[in-house]
Design a binder for these strands. Structure first.
Lengths: 247, 247
DNA sequence: GAGTGGTCTAGACCACCTT
DNA sequence: AGGTGGTCTAGACCACTCA
């Protein structure tokens, strides 16, 4: 029996929202702290005396709100606070996560050289079929995977890049080793659902809400330095922009 | 029987994803165009020969992806394309929606004067309990409600504001009638779930994914001109930022 | 009033994680 | 091996929309 699940007070609308409120209350009051594991669905079902489907409805609701998340076939957990990301700053993931007192980590999942297809060739201003570096990485905060990304880089700008250790800041490598400087960034963000592959890499279920972020970096000559597509867990990020009048 | 629902080819994973794929295909190929109504859940159930719950699972998936949306107890519809929003531009909703060839509309739901509570008083730099204008609006694109917002304005900066027609650009009113100029904007965005009230106002179900946007506008003297909290349907917005080196 | 989605029940079996 | 969430079935009733 879980103290923070009380039956009755079905005053409001649907039952699943009543259950949701009880769990949300537990989280807000700190009875369930960040990272804590919730009781199993069947335990909740028994202690609340309702069907499992209804319990799951409540859990999905909380997941959509970003209050809890699931680890596949392991259980439901309280979400840690989101990281604030400011696209107008030039700091990378490793920097701003650390600044916010959290522990960033990057894993390189795979790298390779692929021929540029038509759209990519156009973006990079290179010939169709010319080689392009591709880097797939997974990044975590406090040990919890929060995003997967695919980065494409023109080998002409950073020959031998794939031989470097890529488990850190790519921008730093480009600046330090290749004297490449980014002077312009284009960022695009859109709420989405995580597709199968991405979801699996993040240990989430397909359809879990996410945020798709694509970033194109240019150097002073207007050449594309880096094209980056990221899929974030929706509860791990918050975007913040502070703007003065146009320069 | 719907031509774009074919049984068989359960090759891949769960059935609901197979159904999802069939419907998604119909949308991508244009067999189902933007705004089109899908067959009812019970029709899909019959024609696909599976349980209604499974059909709904597929529909939820498509909803999370932003491909379809529901009108409460009316049916499921194909989502129109998202609007691109650039927080670094100073254009307002009416402007950028029109620029993208869509028809914007604003409805004022309610207005009023409320006493400033502690946090708001601090933000606006006014005394606790001092009056504050509050404006609740709903904005639509091509007749479909996409966001609800609550705006707070210090009456000292725009006396009699509530007597104006507020069904347009608030920024324009402030500039034109009150000689107030915004020189700084702070924007915060976070994926969320739409809570009951908001969802109802948008004709959506509570828990539908959304994007919460808060904007604080400052004038040249650093005073807060306007505080705006918006809840967007997640499939209606896409954020785009283009940045040069810091000024 | 017929049809729609919204909610809920009470089961079942599976794949996978954890121990 | 036992427990977990993932998927699926086959019903039911309700509140609401729409014609």
């Amino acid at each position: 029996m879980n103290a923070w699940i009380k039956p009755a007070d079905n005053a409001g609308g649907p039952q699943y929202l009543v259950i949701r409120d009880q769990i949300a209350l537990g989280i807000q009051t700190g009875a369930l702290s960040a990272g804590a594991k919730l009781p199993s669905e069947r335990q909740l079902q028994t202690s609340a005396g309702i069907a499992r489907g209804t319990i799951r409805e409540a859990l999905f609701q909380l997941e959509a709100e970003g209050l809890i998340y699931r680890r596949d076939r392991s259980g439901w957990y309280v979400s840690p606070p989101a990281i604030t990301y400011d696209p107008t700053r030039w700091a990378g993931f490793m920097t701003y996560v650390a600044e916010q007192g959290r522990a960033p980590a990057t894993e390189t999942l795979s790298t390779g050289t692929v021929p540029a297809f038509v759209p990519a060739a156009e973006v990079f201003g290179i010939a169709e079929g010319a080689p392009l570096y591709m880097i797939n990485r997974r990044r975590s905060i406090d040990g919890r995977p929060v995003l997967v990304e695919r980065i494409m880089v023109d080998p002409a700008m950073a020959p031998g890049l794939l031989e470097q250790s890529l488990d850190g800041s790519l921008t730093r490598i480009l600046t330090t080793h290749y004297d490449v400087t980014v002077t312009r960034n284009r960022v695009d963000m859109q709420p989405c659902a995580l597709v199968k592959d991405v979801a699996e890499t993040l240990g989430a279920k397909p359809g879990t809400p996410g945020l798709k972020v694509t970033r194109t970096s240019f150097d002073a000559r207007g050449r594309v330095v880096e094209y980056d597509r990221e899929y974030w867990r929706h509860d791990a990020i918050r975007i913040h922009v502070d703007l003065g009048v146009r320069a």
